[in-house]
Amino acid sequence: MATLTRGGETAMIGREPGFFDALMARFGRVILIGLPLAFLVIWTMVPLIWALLASFKEPLEIYESRSFWPRNPSLDAYWTVLGMDGFGKWMFNSILVTVVATIVPLILSIIAAYAFARYLFPFRHVLLLLYLVPRIIPRVSLIVPLNDLMTDLGLINTYWVLYITYIASAVPLATWILVGFFKAVPREIEESATIDGANMWNRLRYVILPIAWPGVVTAAVLCIREGWNEFAFVLALVTETGMRTLPYALYMLKDSMGVQDYAVYNAFTILTVLPLLVVYLLLERRVVDSIVSGAVK
């Protein structure tokens, strides 16, 4: 048996790899990579594309489900959504809350992450842990006590309640990302800046932040994502129609619309998803690199 195998191998080595072998290797590779890749693309994009196509269709056409492409593409559904009572307010709410819940956590996190990355102070591990443990607490589980607390404080149906809760959930995320990026800036560079006469603020402004900029961008995009997509908190803490954010409004849409107008429904969905996707696509490179490099966990 052993000799047989050895003989076979010798034969393989001795033979010139011909055109047929190359073709088979190529074909095998196409199958092995191509099939999962096609699955990945279809799996990822179908829900989005199906919703996008439906938003251009007529309600009846959707219901009949005869064709993939819209027969008479129209933007009517979008005009309906944009003309909807409250849509502008919801969009405004989403943008406002997201902006606040991005800028404030970023500032707080940059300062805290700098301390964690550079200072050797007693209890820093404990404090960092206090920052990070909330990352493993399921946020939805907090809506019951939060609702109770915010009712007592009379903050239900205010922007403040959204700011506070969104910021609290974004700070641990941003701090975690930034500590990693700040630590990656070589200490010698900062020492050099110290000798060059830069105080802490100047070191942050001119040295640390520019070098760790991909991390700041990543943290910002992920804060925007949290703020834009947050649902559990707004569901628990807001009851007024005018205080809703887009995800909440989307959720309530099926109740508020008498007839199931799928085109409008899908157009609404696309409009809530699109702004964040644009932000992501603009900064995709940094975000993907950060996640792949293990800086976001």
């Binding site: 990945l40 693309v41 990822t44 994009m45 179908v46 829900p47 989005l48 199906w50 919703a51 439906a54 994502r225 834009w228 997509n229 649902f231 887009l246 995800p247 909440y248 989307l250 959720y251 799928y262 429904y265 899908n266 969905t269 809530t272 998803v273 964040l276 996707l277 992501y280 696509l281 995709e284 490179r285 975000v287 993907v288 996640i291």
Partner: peptide, 21 residues
Amino acid sequence: GMSLVPYFVSGIAAAVMFRFV
């Protein structure tokens, strides 16, 4: 870049899309 797109779709929107699929 494309593979990460669903990560940026809110849970509600993802559910609505899946309902529709």
